[in-house]
Amino acid sequence: MSLDKAFERVTRIFNPADVQVSKCASIIKPKVVATMIKKSKHPVLITGGKLLEDERLVDFVVKLHEKTGMDVIATGGSSRPLIERGVEPVATVFTLHYVTQYLTDPNWKGFDGKGNYDLAVFIGFTAPYYLSRMLSALKHFSRVNTISICEYYQPHAKFSFPNLNEDLYYEALNMILEV
């Protein structure tokens, strides 16, 4: 299957029972991800523990950070491989749970003191159900735009990649970098 077709077909939720009545995430194409990051005033990339076991994800985050200058909040221990590759995350010790709680507070100044973020991009979480819960909190209790570029479709993000097999997934990530 080509990448284009993968983004056009109906996608499944990572868990068919994780259903809500509010709108499910719109499928987002890599080029649009890149555009949204570019247009955002205060974006942040939030990384998860899968980076500890997937060098290609680390490569991607390093390149995206270099290309966009977007701040990285590293959770789940993902800071270690990123720091080894020269990325300095703006936060390393706060779990995704903490970070989501902070994001739901409109008065939070962000880790850089510039105010709450207007766009949060999520990548590399070992547990899709964990990210799903956090995206649900952000959907209902915050105004932050959320994009999941994980391998599973995340219904509670505002925008999400569809489910992608391994090859297509890395192809999609590379396309973000190419824009």
Partner: peptide, 25 residues
């Protein structure tokens, strides 16, 4: 320690006035 909520469902169906859609609080 502010309570933090991560809804599993965004509706309530416990009474017959519902089910009620509660999304976005």
């Amino acid at each position: 320690y502010e309570p933090f909520y991560a809804p599993m469902q965004d509706f309530c169906n416990l009474c017959t006035m519902g089910p009620c859609e509660l999304s976005h609080n």
